[in-house]
């Protein structure tokens, strides 16, 4: 900025041109807004009023693909619909069996937990949302979904699709919410290697088909094909949700850490429907190792 002012002064030695003054004022204003907005909800009023202008614009951008979708469904042939329905029905039958088994297990689990005096499992509620077809920023992995604060959505709620973890909500507007994907370079998710139980962190790389596990020492027991699930640490994601599959393990003798790449299970770049999850961690892990001194109080919570 100083350089620009000097340049201006050289062209008009007696006075700074009005254009330069305006530029300086607007730059200062931008920087001021940024300083406010860096803090959480620092420029809340400005952001909320801009959101009123922006929301209809998002809908306009979305309109062509929504129309295209509607057109596609209306011209779907009866045959393809029928095969689709048959496949889905077969899947429902298979799932019903698994579900029945699971329900029995759940009941048994509950009884055992009661015997042991462990607090009941976390209640989980979900809501389906549609991903708006709006490209926000090519370098960042974020999407908009069509649910907002009117649906009771809050920041930092986990979002899943049919195959695995999708991301978490960040900025909540009235009728839309921004979701940061697993693959965003700003996103990190606490995971566990299902086979060995080892806990680590999976980071986004800005590419919807790859995650990195950057903090594993070279002698770690990790193999290609290992399944990663959420570990439940961090308090955002409930434990044991599928996250990714390890696709590449490179051990370089000169490096202290092993290079691991994984591919997310969720279809991060193709999904149209996702599921928002309400989840409250049972209790925050206690700082001192006193295991369940008051089981009755813990279960009351």
């Amino acid at each position: 900025m100083v350089a620009l002012r000097d340049r201006g002064a050289r062209f008009a030695p007696t006075r700074v041109s009005p254009l330069s003054w305006r530029a300086i004022a607007l730059m200062a204003l931008s920087i001021g807004i940024m300083v406010l907005d860096v803090r959480r909800d620092g420029a809340g009023l400005l952001r909320r009023s801009l959101a009123h202008i922006v929301a209809p614009l998002h809908r306009v951008v979305e309109a062509p693909s929504a129309l295209w979708d509607a057109a596609l469904t209306s011209v779907n042939t009866r045959d393809s619909l029928r095969t689709n329905i048959a496949a889905l029905e077969a899947r429902v039958r298979e799932d019903a069996l698994t579900l029945a088994k699971l329900r029995a297990l759940e009941l048994e689990n509950e009884r055992l937990q009661q015997l042991l005096g462990v607090s009941p499992r976390d209640a989980i509620r979900t809501l389906t949302a549609r991903v708006l077809q709006v490209d926000l920023d090519a370098l960042r992995q974020r999407v908009l979904i069509d649910r907002g604060s009117v649906d009771g959505i809050e920041p930092s709620q986990p979002v899943m699709d049919a195959h695995g973890v999708f991301g978490q909500t960040t900025r909540v507007n009235a009728s839309t919410t921004e979701v940061i994907l697993l693959s965003d370079p700003d996103h990190a998710i606490p995971v566990q290697i299902e086979r060995s139980g080892l806990r680590t962190i999976a980071m986004g790389l800005g590419d919807p088909s790859r995650l990195a596990l950057p903090y594993l020492p070279r002698n770690t027991d990790v193999q290609v094909g290992d399944s990663l699930v959420t570990s439940g640490l961090g308090g955002v994601y409930p434990p044991d949700l599928p996250v990714a599959i390890v696709t590449e393990v490179r051990r370089d003798p000169s490096q202290p850490l092993v290079q691991v790449r994984a591919v997310p299970r969720a279809n991060l770049d193709r999904d149209r429907e996702v599921m928002i999850i309400w989840y409250k961690p049972r209790v925050t892990p206690p700082p001192s190792p006193v295991p369940n001194a008051h089981p009755t109080r813990a279960s009351a919570q």
Partner: peptide, 9 residues
């Protein structure tokens, strides 16, 4: 505001 990044950037 539209792309949801830092306001003013």
């Amino acid at each position: 505001a539209f792309s949801g990044i830092l306001l003013g950037q």
